[in-house]
Structure formats: structure tokens, C-alpha cells
Simulated assay, not measured.
Amino acid sequence: MPSTLAALLCLGLCLSQMTSSTKHTLLKPIIWAKPSFIIAKGRPVTIWCQGFPEAVEYHLLFKEQLFALKRPKSCDKVTFSIPAMTLHHAGPYRCIYLSGEHWSQLSEPLDLIMTGMYDTPTLSVQPRAQVTSGENVTFHCHLESATNTFFLLKEGRANPLQQTYGKNGADFSLSPVTPAHRGTYRCFGSYNNFAWSFPSEPMKLFVAGSMENTSPVPTETTFSDEKDLRDLCPSTTETRLHKEFASWDLTAQNLFRIGIAVLILMAMVGLLVKSWCSRKKTQAQLTEVSSGILGEGPEHKDHSTRGSGHR
């Protein structure tokens, strides 16, 4: 029995450490930029980082190095302001937060892009800007200044629609078009992924056809200088997102605890069965020995009597 208790105690301590490490696995924060991740040279931009209410400190990393740190004043997110966008600020950002003595996972990367480095490209469309669903459409972006990369963006999308390489120009094919391609397009020229030219003049594409699935997808990509009107309290969507994360985390922890309880119960049952079998085996051996001794007694006495009479 002492060995059984020692085994259960060891098992409990090991599982307790596993539960503790699982509990402190923090989810990654969310990072975004306002008014957009595409910022004109000299314009201000704000980087937002959102974690959980238990976070006591946020670190903003730029190119994997500490760029700034901040303690939250309220709610579950902080802001990092860049008063004037420069080439030195363009690049990949991540954020991370501290809760208790544990750091969260790194956020997804945020690529901050500066525009206004080169001349303004021109954007044209062939065969025309008003087409019918099913036709082939090609956008041509041209820039006199030497460059090697061109980007085509559609308003309403969070990322570039296409990226093409070329010296002074590039073609972007949309074939065949559908009503979902309807919208406003711009193009940029670039020498790298974080420093772009001025945006081209907007080009509107009209596609005649069914109106199904033509509603734009909400996104943070804009070309305006609108200020962020949200306060530091979580929005409905972000609060719901974090509640879902918390629910998933709690469900995982509950399942892990149930698994631990089942393992402990199985271990206890196994040890009890082993102890019962050992006792039964010992009792059987004692019974066999006792039976042997009792069975030999009379026979031994008879042999002794015969020997004495013979003498």
C-alpha cells in the first residue's frame, strides 16, 4: 500500500505540472493599423495590439527587435503611434503581451507599407472599362521610373490582388471576369515590398451580369486619411472573437482535466486490482503450505511408531 500511495502521488504531481503549463499557454494577440497598413510618406499611422484583459504589458516588435512597449490603461488593447511615416518605419511588425509571469505567442505579422517613394504610375484597362460577365480583362500599369515590382489593389480587399514583375510596366489579367470583379482599382510600382510609389489614378471596372455575391467585403484597406473613430474599448466583433477564443481555451482545459481524472481513476483501479491479485496469490500459497503440513503429520507419526515397534 505505501508503494501505491507513492505512485499515485507521483502521478498527481506530474499531471499537476502538465495542467499548469497548459493553463499558461496564452493565445496570440491581434495586430492591425489605422487608417490603413498602406500609408503615404509623412502621414501618421497608429498600430493597434489587442490581447486579453489580464495583460499587464505589450511589446511591439519591428523586424523581430523591440520597437516600443506600453502598459494598458483600460480594456484589452493598446496603441503605438507613428507621427510621420518614413522609410525607416516601413516593414514587418508583431506584438506580444505579458500576463502574470507568462508571455503570449507572437501575433501574425503586420506589413506596414509606405507610399510616395516614386512617380505616379498610370493604369489602363483593355479592352474597355465596361464589360460583360465572362469577358477577359487586362489591367496595364506603367511607370516611367525604373522599378521591378508592380502591385494591383482593389478597394475592398485587405491585400494586393496581384503582384507582377516588370521593368517599366506590368499586365494584370482578370479572366474571365464576374460581377465580383466590379469595383475601383489602383496600381503601385515598387523596388521592395515595403516602399511603394504614389498610387495611380483610380480605375473603375463595370461588369454587367448577375448581382449575386457582389457586396464588398469589409476591410481596413483605404486610401483616405480618415481618423480612427473607435475608442479603447473592444468593439462587438472583437469582443465576440475573444469570447470564442476564451471558450475554446476553457473547453480544452476542461477536456484535459477530464482526461487527467480518467487516467488517475484507471491507475487507482489498476493498482487496487494488482494488490487484490497479490493478496489472493499469497493466501493461496499459505493455504497450500498449511495443507501440506497437515497432510504429512499422521503419516510421519505412523512411520515413527512402526520404527519403534520393529526395534
Score class of each variant (00 low, 15 high):
5 L>S: 09
6 A>P: 02
9 L>R: 14
10 C>R: 11
13 L>Q: 14
17 Q>C: 15
18 M>T: 12
19 T>A: 15
22 T>W: 12
29 P>S: 05
29 P>Q: 04
29 P>A: 03
34 K>R: 13
35 P>M: 02
35 P>S: 06
39 I>F: 00
41 K>C: 06
41 K>D: 06
43 R>G: 01
43 R>C: 04
43 R>D: 04
46 T>K: 01
47 I>P: 01
48 W>D: 01
51 G>M: 01
52 F>P: 03
53 P>M: 03
54 E>F: 04
56 V>P: 04
56 V>C: 13
57 E>L: 14
57 E>H: 11
58 Y>W: 04
62 F>N: 12
63 K>R: 13
63 K>A: 15
72 P>R: 01
72 P>K: 02
74 S>P: 00
74 S>D: 07
75 C>Q: 09
76 D>F: 01
79 T>A: 02
80 F>G: 11
82 I>P: 01
83 P>Y: 02
85 M>K: 02
89 H>A: 00
91 G>L: 06
92 P>N: 14
96 I>T: 07
97 Y>T: 10
97 Y>A: 10
98 L>Q: 12
100 G>F: 06
101 E>A: 13
102 H>W: 05
103 W>D: 07
105 Q>M: 08
107 S>Y: 02
107 S>F: 04
108 E>N: 05
111 D>G: 09
111 D>Q: 10
113 I>F: 03
115 T>M: 05
116 G>K: 02
116 G>I: 03
117 M>S: 12
118 Y>G: 06
120 T>M: 13
120 T>L: 11
121 P>R: 00
125 V>F: 08
127 P>E: 15
128 R>A: 10
128 R>Q: 10
129 A>C: 11
130 Q>A: 11
134 G>V: 05
135 E>H: 02
140 H>P: 00
141 C>V: 05
146 A>N: 03
147 T>F: 04
147 T>L: 08
150 F>P: 04
161 L>G: 08
161 L>Y: 13
163 Q>K: 14
169 G>N: 11
172 F>E: 04
172 F>K: 04
173 S>K: 15
174 L>I: 02
175 S>G: 00
177 V>P: 01
180 A>L: 06
180 A>N: 07
186 R>K: 06
187 C>R: 08
188 F>I: 01
189 G>T: 12
193 N>V: 13
195 A>Q: 09
195 A>V: 11
198 F>N: 11
201 E>R: 08
204 K>L: 09
209 G>A: 14
210 S>A: 14
220 E>A: 09
221 T>Y: 09
224 S>M: 02
224 S>C: 05
224 S>K: 03
225 D>G: 00
229 L>R: 03
230 R>P: 00
232 L>E: 02
233 C>M: 15
234 P>Y: 03
236 T>H: 07
239 T>E: 11
240 R>K: 11
241 L>R: 05
242 H>I: 05
244 E>R: 09
245 F>N: 07
248 W>C: 15
254 N>F: 12
262 V>C: 15
264 I>F: 11
266 M>E: 15
266 M>Y: 15
268 M>S: 14
271 L>N: 06
272 L>E: 07
273 V>I: 12
281 K>T: 09
281 K>C: 09
284 A>K: 15
285 Q>T: 08
289 V>N: 04
290 S>M: 05
290 S>F: 03
291 S>D: 08
292 G>S: 07
292 G>I: 01
293 I>P: 03
294 L>M: 11
295 G>T: 13
295 G>I: 10
296 E>H: 06
297 G>P: 01
302 D>E: 11
302 D>N: 08
302 D>Y: 09
303 H>D: 06
303 H>G: 06
